[in-house]
Design a protein around this nucleic acid. Structure first.
Lengths: 343, 343
DNA sequence: ACTCTTTTTGGTACCGCTACCAATATTATA
DNA sequence: TATAATATTGGTAGCGGTACCAAAAAGAGT
């Protein structure tokens, strides 16, 4: 069974391929009679034009590319990706675009694959989920003019009309978190953050430090610990942190996954949360309000992040006009993992 | 800036397009001299052949399609999808294939989109993550001969050489779980399961029932409750279950996400786990060993599921020979959420 | 009925690549 | 050196569409 082509349809409906093509593309110069006949034949033969061939003669394929840093086997329990891809998928479906997923571990390869997809006109837009600092892929994309949505903060130096970013205000929100902790009487606060090459985490740490500074609390290096990306690595980091600085009364984790590690470490050290140690997380995953004690955290509407970035990207693709980036509002969820310190 | 084509390369290296094409495809009939010259020009011009054009004249595009049922906005915290897609992504990258994601909510549309991708030769294989019972997409795929990997159990009636399945033995393992609970002295065991149209959940319930039966424990309808897909819906279900059947001493949840809902419900009712209620989950997500008490659960190596299904799919695509389905081993993780009942 | 427009149609080059066949260059053999 | 065999090469017809141009058909005006 070989595929029905436009030729077959043309023969069967006794018109030329041109006419069939016109019908397919809603060209006005077709008589009502032929249009109906062709339509009927298309229906009968269940004909679907080849996207491949169409894309070759036209201006490319209707697809968008999601680029993300594939996590290691041991760091993939994070639901972030699933949520955001589902959101993007919903928007792509509504726009009748396909979704191509690219998750390289090798940055060089990632860049060359992406650039060749662009040159091939295989994609009409890109959503970048990777949030590495100094991302060389972004630098490569600057030389093109394909619409790009970056989920996460964009380097301030990047100001190209075809690239925009959608993010929450990590710095401001981390500042709030820290002020909240200080307000609850905490002054010796530890911080478990992601590896240094992660934008988001960096911003969160920065906001946290700003708040400390504005309250004249010294920023001591040994209060900060790289907690990696997994519960396990965060657990290790928290354990070390709590042993080295026994005066700590609260910990700010830049992600709920890391907060989970802190919970675990506290348990191991027989410290009770929030009586012996207060904890604040970030993102608000489903499990966060389900663990005991329920986690006080900054709720990030990850799904909305996906919807907004994809919607803007499609607007840009269709209209060809630049979109401005935007900040998605968050919500601080005060639950049971922080206790007021009364000396 | 227009894309460099094979023409440009041919002109610049003073050979015909045929020769360039030969160089690109490692055809032996090219002199060393021209081969080197062409290679240099390709390098110089940074030429990348168009995948689109290549696919059109050859036998299609090098991509595989992942089809999954996109969860609702409120049910996407489940890390399952992320894990499995990451695994598939790794294998696809190694095979230099692209990954197309399809997540329709409308089954009709899903089928027509998938079938047209196949007809277009846009994809060389499919990985089906959806686990609905009586999946009409599978029925449509039966009429083609494209390699399909189903992650999850395949209907016993389906026996086509180009379709295979990779799964754990849900029935057997649920049976084990139930026997374990019975061995710990529990006889009035509740069950929170997924909606009835889910294969996996169905199998788990079945295995659970088998064990009850073989121990001559009556299977009472009101011990089973549909817990939906989210922590919240499972919470509601567990609450109702625990109120209606106050004699229950243990609950089997067919997914750790649902177990989380049970934890929450128990907390609400001031029941202590495991003292007042034992709980067993299924899958073993990261959070499962981190919650208090740590959850006894059946560990499913989701990542391996992805790796194995993708690897087999590629083997099938490359060799053109059928692959047999397989069962991935699991591991029962006994932790702190089940207590032995001593009357 | 006979031009002059306006619709509608068909023919075909092209998108960028591969595959086949024929033509040419090279080398081996007599 | 002539001839056969082999190694390279170029030309070109697809793959399945679209788009432009010219041809044919239909309608309008006198």
């Amino acid at each position: 069974m070989t595929k029905t082509t436009i030729q077959d349809v043309a023969e069967r409906s006794k018109v030329s391929v041109s006419t069939v093509s016109r019908v397919l593309n809603d060209h006005p110069a077709v008589s009502k009679k032929s249009r109906e006949r062709v339509m009927r034949v298309i229906e009968e033969m269940n004909y679907q034009p080849s996207k491949l061939a169409r894309s070759l003669s036209l201006n490319g394929f209707d697809a968008i590319l999601i680029v993300y840093t594939r996590p290691s086997k041991f760091a993939i329990d994070n639901p972030y990706f699933n949520i955001i891809v589902s959101a993007i998928g919903a928007v792509a479906e509504a726009n009748d675009f396909d979704l191509i997923l690219q998750s390289s571990t090798d940055e060089k390869k990632e860049i060359s694959k992406t650039m060749s997809m662009i040159a091939d006109k295989l994609i009409k837009g890109i959503i970048l989920l990777s949030s590495r600092v100094d991302d060389s892929l972004i630098n490569a994309l600057l030389k093109t003019n394909i619409p790009v949505a970056v989920v996460g903060k964009l380097d301030i130096k990047i100001d190209h009309p075809h690239i925009f970013s959608v993010d929450t205000d990590n710095t401001r929100d981390s500042n709030s978190i820290c002020r909240y902790l200080i307000g609850m009487g905490h002054t010796r606060i530890g911080c478990i953050h992601a590896p240094k090459n992660h934008y988001v985490s960096l911003d969160r740490v920065q906001g946290f430090c700003q708040a400390l500074k504005s309250h004249n609390i010294a920023i001591e290096d040994d209060l900060f610990m790289d907690g990696g990306h997994t519960v396990e690595s965060a657990y290790d980091a928290a354990l070390r942190l709590l042993c080295e600085r026994q005066d700590i009364t609260a910990i700010f984790a830049t992600d709920d996954i890391k907060a989970l590690g802190v919970y675990q470490a506290a348990k191991r050290l027989s410290m009770s949360i929030p009586d012996d140690l207060s904890v604040v997380g970030y993102n608000d995953y489903t499990f966060s309000k389900m663990i005991t004690p329920s986690l006080t955290t900054m709720r990030v509407p990850i799904y909305d992040l996906g919807i907004v970035s994809a919607t803007k990207l499609f607007a840009m693709i269709k209209k060809g006009l630049p979109e401005s980036g935007c900040i998605i509002p968050t919500e601080f969820k005060i639950r049971d993992s922080v206790k007021a310190l009364t000396e």
